[in-house]
């Protein structure tokens, strides 16, 4: 009986915030903020900088192809093109997928896009730039914090839920391209 007024007040608050977002001009503070995607790889929390990816899809079918490495899961049709899909977990050193194919994918690279697949997407988070810290020796510190993917982590982000390792997508893409024989440095890098 007491739930209905609470729900109504909550709906009214949301409606007010929504209207207010369009009523105010874009704040300058937003330029000082960084957009993060909160994910989990093999159960470990990680973060990805939104500006380092070209897109995000979910639930696309991955067709396995023969490959010399376990990192390549197969090919997927994304945005009208055939894109190779790599497993982020195996790239970070967690081995093969624990159960089934990861359903979340991020697109990287503009000219020759590749997709990195992971199992869990926790959400979107906008933090101030000051929350990002350069990690000089990520292997020494991050293994104890965020798992075993220390070679692709050079920053950490402090959030309300704790500290997350920020995966450097350009570093991952460069590694993939190096393994496949491409030495051309990416634009992001």
């Amino acid at each position: 009986m007491n739930e209905t007024p609470v729900t109504e007040s909550k709906a009214a608050k949301l409606r007010q915030e929504f209207d207010l977002a369009f009523a105010l001009p874009p704040s300058q503070a937003s330029e000082e903020a960084i957009d993060l995607l909160m994910i989990r790889v093999a159960g470990d929390p990680y973060a990805i900088l939104l500006r380092e990816i070209a897109g995000m899809v979910v639930g696309r079918a991955v067709v396995p192809i023969p490959a010399v490495t376990l990192d390549l899961l197969g090919l997927a049709g994304i945005r009208g093109g055939v894109v190779p899909v790599f497993g982020l977990a195996s790239l970070l050193g967690y081995g093969g997928p624990a159960s089934g194919s990861p359903r979340w994918m991020i697109l990287c690279g503009a000219d020759e896009p590749i997709a990195l697949a992971f199992s869990d997407f926790e959400g979107y988070l906008r933090v101030p730039k000051s929350s990002l810290h350069i990690e000089e020796n990520p292997r020494a510190t991050l293994t104890t914090r965020v798992g075993r993917g220390g070679q692709y982590v050079n920053q950490v982000a402090s959030t309300d839920a704790g500290v997350r390792a920020v995966i450097s997508i350009p570093l991952v893409v460069a590694t993939i391209r190096n393994r496949s024989g491409h030495h051309r440095p990416s634009k992001e890098q």
Binding site: P26, D35, I53
Partner: peptide, 26 residues
């Protein structure tokens, strides 16, 4: 979830559009 992904992709696209994409980013 689809809407969220769509919004994230829109944000990415808006960021790529520079100044013109700021309002769209909002």
């Amino acid at each position: 979830e689809q809407t969220n992904i769509l919004a994230i992709n829109a944000t990415i696209e808006a960021a790529g559009a520079g100044e013109n994409g700021k309002r769209f980013a909002v």
